[in-house]
Write a protein that binds this DNA or RNA. Structure first.
Lengths: 213, 213
DNA sequence: GTCTATATGGGGATAGAC
DNA sequence: GTCTATCCCCATATAGAC
């Protein structure tokens, strides 16, 4: 990767994924290489020939696995959003609604996705606009639901006196936004462990909503 | 704009700019339309014909004003980074280094740029990777310097006891990151004033570094 | 500066043999 | 499933008249 780090839109360059996130065989290999290329150059900045070459096959062969270039992206967007939504859903049980513990668990889960799987998260979040409306719809639902989990938590914490924020929606944008940006810088300069980042950001989120932490 | 809001990568759709940020005449008009198109579809997702049509001219005419498509983007990236850097620089005088007042002023300035000029900020920050190394270099210096202003403030505030954070660099990434994301959602749903967002985010930043606010 | 016309290459995608 | 060969269109960019 001869591009200077600060000129790239993502600092990480190794594709990391949850176990079994991609299918085995050629279809999975295509998705794997597409994550790398789409994260680095964007969907429109990557040609079908670039992708084929990275996979060690001819471009025509891609069409035996996916009906169009767009479907490769759509699949990555779907996987990325499912990974994220699952992570947040899994953070709910065992934490009381509207509590500091719940907010911390949600933020930890949120940040861990962006720190552990930065390339996948980048593609899912920054290239979604290049997918057609129909193919993007399921991911948009998952995204809205994930956002609502955090907003509900902030709102309920306000109602029950656990939190104190000037504006719950702005707290949501700030908390969600700082986590999303981790995908861009993770892997640069200092080598932080994803767990460390997640814990620290959870602390930041609690402070942000007025909880001593 | 028939694209559903949540499917777009940017919620705002009106190009807003600081006074005199763009030249007068056709060159300026080209930059103006390029901001809109590059913000919405990305550099590689916008053709030279799309851009010409938006300007009401033929594609060949663009080359009387810019030597190549890339130079149009490079100019926007440069302008965007200069606007941002100027805003942060202007926040320094009158605030003591390493103080809560300085951090608040820097965060206010940072967030205001992304809230007031979301399309320009989006292009400058999300499409920089599509500009050649030579053309991108000056912007990268401005960006590094702006980041250092915030990091110095956090570090000095730690040294002098004004702040208390688990990790200054992570505080920087969190504070800078939440501000940058404003460009994506500003203009959606709730109608916040940029000043309100900036003030609220400044409060969040102070809380984040352990200052009662 | 702007146009029409066009050069030239690369893009996504398909046909058909193996 | 994979290949070679190819279609066809659209991309950036240029030539040259007005």
């Amino acid at each position: 990767m001869s591009i200077p780090a600060e000129h790239r839109r993502i600092a990480a360059d190794e594709v990391r994924l949850p176990p079994h996130a991609l299918p085995d065989g050629r279809s999975g290999r295509i998705l794997h290489e597409a994550i790398r290329l789409f994260a680095e150059y964007g969907f429109h900045g990557t040609s079908i020939r670039d992708l084929a070459e990275a996979c060690g096959i001819r471009s025509a062969t891609l069409y035996a696995h996916y009906p169009a270039k767009e479907h490769v992206l759509a699949e990555l967007v779907r996987i990325g959003h499912e990974v994220h939504h699952s992570a947040l859903s899994a953070a709910l049980p065992g934490t009381p609604p509207g509590s500091a513990a719940r907010l911390a668990a949600l933020v930890r889960a949120h940040v861990l996705v962006f720190a552990r799987y930065p390339l996948l998260a980048m593609v899912a979040n920054n290239e979604l606009h290049a997918v057609s409306r129909e193919l993007a719809a399921p991911s948009l639902l998952l995204r809205a639901d994930a956002q609502q989990m955090i907003l509900d938590t902030v709102n309920l914490g306000m109602d029950n006196g656990a939190f104190d924020v000037p504006d719950p929606y702005l707290a949501l944008t700030a908390i969600a936004g700082m986590g999303m940006r981790v995908a861009h810088w993770y892997g640069a300069a200092s080598h932080y462990d994803p767990e460390t980042i997640a814990d620290t950001y959870a602390t930041f989120a609690l402070r942000l909503v007025g909880v001593e932490a």
